[in-house]
Every structure is written in C-alpha cells, then in structure tokens.
Amino acid sequence: MTTTTKTTTRLDVPKTYKLFIGGAFPRSESGRVTEVRDGEGRFVANVAKASRKDAREAVRAARKAQPGWAGATAYNRGQVLYRVAEVLEGRKAQFVDELQRTEGLSAARARAQVEEAIDLWVWHAGWTDKIAQVAGSANPVAGPYFNISVPEPTGVVAIVAPQSQGLLGLTSVVAPALVMGNAVVVIPAASSPLVAISLAEVLATSDLPGGVVNVLTGDPAELAPWLASHADVNALDLTGAGDLDWVALEVAAADTLKRVIRPEPGIAPETPQRILALTETKTVWHTKSRM
C-alpha cells in the first residue's frame, strides 16, 4: 500500500514483487526491474524483470517437479486446485486492490474478475478425476486383447498468458495445464504483474509442490522465444501471444515438436479441450489369449 488515510498515520509496508521459481521467490538474476505505476501515475512497485537465465532456471524447476505432481492421485490434485480457490477467496480484497491499481478497474469489475477466476479454479479442480473417463476409452480391438487409452500429462508447458484481465487470463491458461499433472512456466500479462505474483503466493500456500508453477514477470517478447526454443519444454501455449511474432515462436517450437496452442483473442475459453491439448494419449495393450 502506498496510500495513507486521514484516520491513521501508520506507514504502509509495501511488498517486493519478485519472480516465482521452484517454490521460492527470487529476484531476477539480471537485477532488472520494471517500474509499475497506477492510473494516476503514482509509484506502486518495482517488479522483477525476468531474463533468459531465469527462464532456464524456471524450466529446470518445472522439469524436476513435474513427475511428482503427475504422480499424485487425481483426487489429490483436485483437492490442491480446490485449495487454490479457497485461499484465493480469502485474499479477494488484495487481488481487487491490485487489479484496480494496474488495470484501472472499478471495484465492482475488479471483484467480478477475481470471483470469476476463483470459480474457474473450482471448475478445473473438478476435472482432475473425470477427464480420463470422458476422454479415455476401452477399445474394442479385433483380437483377444485388453486395450485402453488414457490421457497423460505432456510434461513441461510454457505459457504466454492472455494480455488482458491479468488474474482471470492467467488462471484460464495455468489451471488447465495443471489438471492432468503438467508443470508450468508462465509469462503473465505484462500489464498485470502484481496479481501474477500474488497468485504465486496463493499457489505456494495451497499444497501445490514447489516448481509445479513458475512465474516469470517481464517482457513476453523477450522471454517467449527462449521458451519456444528450449529443448526441455514439451508444449507451448501461445494463447496470449497474439501481439507477438507468434508464427516465429511456433516455428521455433517445431524444432523439438512441441505441442502448440495458438493465440486466442481475449480470455482462453472454458473447455476441456484446453486440458486435453496438453495431454498425450497412452494406449495399453495386454494379451488375454492364454488362460
């Protein structure tokens, strides 16, 4: 808080907005920050500006955390995502405040965005133990074989979040990636870095293992190419990359045949297709020919 009111003379203790990598909150190794000012030009924060090396650290942390998260039971993952919604609900006022300052929203519209984001976490929490039943199959092959197909997480997903509605946009791309057990490196909207780091604090206190989500505040145009060409990233979600040279990013991603989600105008749609786009289908054959 940078404002004081007439009723108190107490001086606020403003927060330092740092990156979120491997469950910790480091500054950028580059030492760079971006100054954030509110709609009236008042100073709000110096937000860490991530570098290529930070992105590399984030991918390393995501890779390390991913098997554990994917190995948790679907029920457990669902409870963790629901816990995110619970913790977010309790910190609603903070997010409303941050959105008002960075996006210039009215209190009502800021609250509406936060509430929609909370509900979107709940919606995704419900998918963890259902998507395999909806999208998986028992396959009637022409022979004495047990044959089933199940969706599995693709691995590490790098995301350029929607550039509008910072909290809702971020939720709309991060939550679907987490449902089945991917780990995420996300570049939040450049215009809304505060809610991104505050959401990271929520994730850090919701039993989500460290490294499953990594948040790189900074310049998407600078960071996205490094993630697109990184050999240890499995999928690239360009939902919020419409204003970047996203075709070049898709070309770079093709080097290691990353799965690519192309840009969407506005907020990513609420559909299980987004969850499934970040999965691999595994088919298991087992003979039943010999009794």
């Binding site: 087992h286 003979t287 010999r290 009794m291």
Partner: peptide, 8 residues
C-alpha cells in the same frame, strides 16, 4: 499371469 487374469 496377466493374460490369465484378464481372460478370466
């Protein structure tokens, strides 16, 4: 024996 289990 997996084959036996599934066949049965």
């Amino acid at each position: 024996k997996g084959s036996r289990v599934l066949a049965i």
